[in-house]
Each structure stands twice: as structure tokens, then as C-alpha cells.
Computed example of a mutant assay.
Amino acid sequence: MHDILVLSAATLAAGFLRGVTGFGFALAAVPLYSLTMAPLQAIVVAQILQIAAAPTDFLQNRRSVDRRALGRLCGGALVFAPIGAVFATRLPADALRLAIAAIVLMGLAALMARVTIRDGKAPAVTAGALAGLLGGLAAMPGPPAVAYFLGRGTEKSVSRASLLLFFAFTASIALAALALESEVVDWGIGVSALAAYPSMLFGNWMGTRLFQRLGDGHYRVAALAVLFLSAALTGAKGIAGLI
């Protein structure tokens, strides 16, 4: 019962962040889930929940999506998400957490410096490839994709809609690869995800209501805050595991 309560509380918080920014779910959920389950199991639960939310995301956001950018991001992720999943099954979890935290912080520093990312195929495919690698590695494709949209100065509604669908795509590819590479995907994981799903829906609903009240400037601040929080949580968990 304790584990279910922790899982539901973590999912509620992560769902709220997701509703506000369009990302941040796995960034917040995976470190919190790993307090009560193995890191690879935490990754799989986060991926299942993001896939489960995809139909609703598509119906609600399909008119706001940047289809060209989304297609290019997905093209990069399609190749590199399976590679990340292979690494996830073979590398030490705590070392991975530290690497992810470092990558998130580097992306955060670039965004705070207001680095501008030009429009074009190469930046989008590169961001998609990096996001896919992190998505397969730790269910955390957010930082490169978020940096891509914020760096282009994309409107908040377009960024949020595009990110939601991109993360569902990345999670689908990564989960399929993990299912082939390990035995972590089983009925027990599915039951855990099912138990957490109502909390995700409610948290996402609350976050979406707040998103509708945010201006572009406040949206950017919220996005940067989520990135910093995710880096801190992931890095702290990695250091604790290595000490």
C-alpha cells in the first residue's frame, strides 16, 4: 500500500508539471519512482503512462502542433531511442543518472543564456536524436527537445502541443526496444502503471488549467524551473547511489 501511495503521489506531481509545460513528466517521475522500485522499472512505468496519455493529447492538441518540426524530431528519435534503450539495460544506473543531470544542466545553461537555435532540418534532427537517446536511456527526452523549441522562440501553445506528441512517440519506440532487450516489461509493471494512471490524468488536468493562464514569459520560467528541478533530483539520486 505504501508503494502505491508513493507511486500515485509522484505521478500526480509529475502529471501537474506535464500539464503546465508539456514536458517534465518523466524528468520528475523517474527519480521519484526509483525511490521505491528499480531504475529500469521506473523508466518503463513512465514510458507506459506517456503512451497511455497519447490519444487524449492528440485530440486536444493536434491543431497546434508544428508538424514539420515534429516530423524531423521523430526522425532523429527513431534511430537513437533504441540505442539509448540498449545502454539502459547495460550501464550502471547511478552513473547514468549523473550523466543525465549533467546534460540537463548544460541545456539549462544554454537556455538561460538565451542561445538562439536556427530553423532548419539539421538542428531539428539533431535535437530529436539526442532526445531519443535520453528517452531510451532514462525515459527523459525532454531537455534537447525543449531546448530546441525554446531556442527557436516558438509560441508556448505550439511548443507544448508538439512536445506532448513527440514524447509519446519517443516512449513508444524506447519501450519496444526495452521489451526486446530485457524482461523488465511484464504484467507487474503494467499493473503499477494502471494504478498510477488516474493520478496522472488528474495532475495533468490541474496543470493544463494553470497553463491556460500563463503568458509566454511565465511559461519559459516554468520550463526552466522544471529542468533545474529534474537535474537536481536526478543528480542527487546518482550521487547517493555512488557514495
Rank of each mutant, 00 (worst) to 15 (best):
L165D: 05
K156W: 02
G136I: 02
T154P: 02
S64D: 13
L214M: 14
A179N: 11
L133I: 04
I117S: 03
L98Y: 03
Q47M: 15
G84R: 00
L164W: 04
L96T: 11
G203V: 11
P123R: 05
A13M: 14
S162V: 04
T56A: 09
G153A: 08
V30D: 01
G15P: 00
F202D: 01
L201Y: 05
L91Y: 08
L91C: 07
L98P: 04
P92L: 05
A26I: 10
A113Q: 14
A225M: 11
I103A: 11
I103E: 00
A109C: 10
A77N: 01
A53P: 01
A46R: 01
G71N: 04
R152Q: 15
L7D: 03
A101C: 03
I189C: 09
S199G: 09
F23E: 01
C74Y: 00
I243K: 10
A240G: 00
D57G: 13
L165P: 06
V184C: 10
H2L: 09
A10L: 04
A139C: 02
V191I: 14
S157P: 01
D94Q: 14
I4E: 12
V86Q: 08
A240T: 05
V185G: 04
R68M: 06
A131V: 09
G217T: 13
R90Y: 09
L108I: 10
H2T: 11
V45W: 10
E183S: 13
L59A: 14
L7E: 02
S159C: 14
R97K: 14
F80K: 00
F228M: 14
R67V: 13
T116M: 09
G203S: 06
Y197C: 08
E155G: 15
L32T: 11
A131M: 02
V226F: 05
A102H: 03
L242S: 02
G19N: 04
A69M: 03
G107C: 06
A9R: 11
P55A: 03
W187H: 11
L12G: 05
R114Q: 11
L165S: 06
A168D: 02
T170L: 06
F80I: 04
S199N: 09
A124N: 08
A10W: 06
D66H: 10
S8N: 12
L175K: 06
G71S: 06
R90N: 10
D94E: 14
V125L: 12
L201I: 15
T56L: 12
V45S: 02
A147Y: 01
L137K: 03
A113R: 15
A13Y: 08
S157D: 12
F80M: 14
S172Y: 04
T208I: 11
V65D: 08
A177E: 05
A222F: 10
L130F: 15
A193F: 12
R114K: 15
A195R: 13
T21A: 12
M112L: 14
K237F: 05
L7G: 04
I243P: 03
S34Y: 07
F228I: 10
A223Q: 07
A161M: 04
L32K: 13
R118K: 15
R160K: 15
V20Y: 00
I103Q: 00
A129M: 12
A196L: 11
V185T: 08
D94H: 15
A145L: 12
L108W: 12
G235V: 00
L224F: 02
L164K: 05
G135N: 01
M106L: 13
D94Y: 11
L98G: 03
E181H: 13
P143W: 04
P39Q: 04
T21M: 01
G215H: 06
T126H: 00
A222Q: 02
R118G: 07
